[in-house]
Design a binder for these strands. Structure first.
Length: 154
DNA sequence: GCCAACGTTGGC
DNA sequence: GCCAACGTTGGC
């Protein structure tokens, strides 16, 4: 049973182009510091799950491409690095607090702007469109995935 | 820059 | 364990 996710990234930090240029077109999804989002990665993601790569906090927020979960979750190394903005002094290597998964590019697409997603009734249920939603990782239903893929022309 | 919404913190 | 205050997210 395939599963689908939407994962937000600020393109200033990690854009779809950064992913396309990364070795093996794969990057660790580091920096998640929200328990719900962490739990999705830790408990629910499987290698091969579909990912909508979403650009947030930028002039044109929206889905910028398709990706997939590339492996099993493991400790996010940035939590141990005092130089990192994601350093967490309460995390230890014995008891890591934050995990991540690797994400691999499947296909960069023309941007599907958030404003256009809002116009589609079949996407109205998407978590990312809900008022006040702040989760950086949200599950996507099979129907939503199919509808978004069609809008992406993918 | 504004502000709505929600998560986290910390005093009690 | 409550809950007010504070911080963060993120679209606009």
């Amino acid at each position: 049973m395939p599963r689908y996710w939407l994962m937000k990234s600020e393109p200033d930090e990690a854009s779809i182009d950064d992913l396309a240029c990364a070795p093996k077109q794969t990057m660790p999804w580091s920096g998640v510091r929200n328990y719900q989002s962490r739990n999705f990665m830790r408990d629910d993601m499987r290698a091969g799950d579909g990912v909508l790569f979403y650009h947030s906090s930028c002039p044109q927020p929206g889905v910028a491409g398709l990706a997939e979960v590339a492996g099993v979750p493991y400790a996010d190394p940035t939590q141990f690095d005092p130089q990192s903005e994601y350093f967490d002094p309460k995390a230890t290597r014995e008891a890591p607090r934050w995990v991540l998964v690797d994400v691999r590019l499947v296909k960069k697409t023309p941007l599907l702007p958030l404003a256009r997603m809002r116009q589609r009734p079949e996407l109205a249920s998407m978590r990312v469109l809900q008022r006040g939603n702040r989760l950086s990782i949200t599950p996507v239903s099979a129907a939503e995935w199919k509808a978004v893929r069609e809008l992406l022309g993918a």
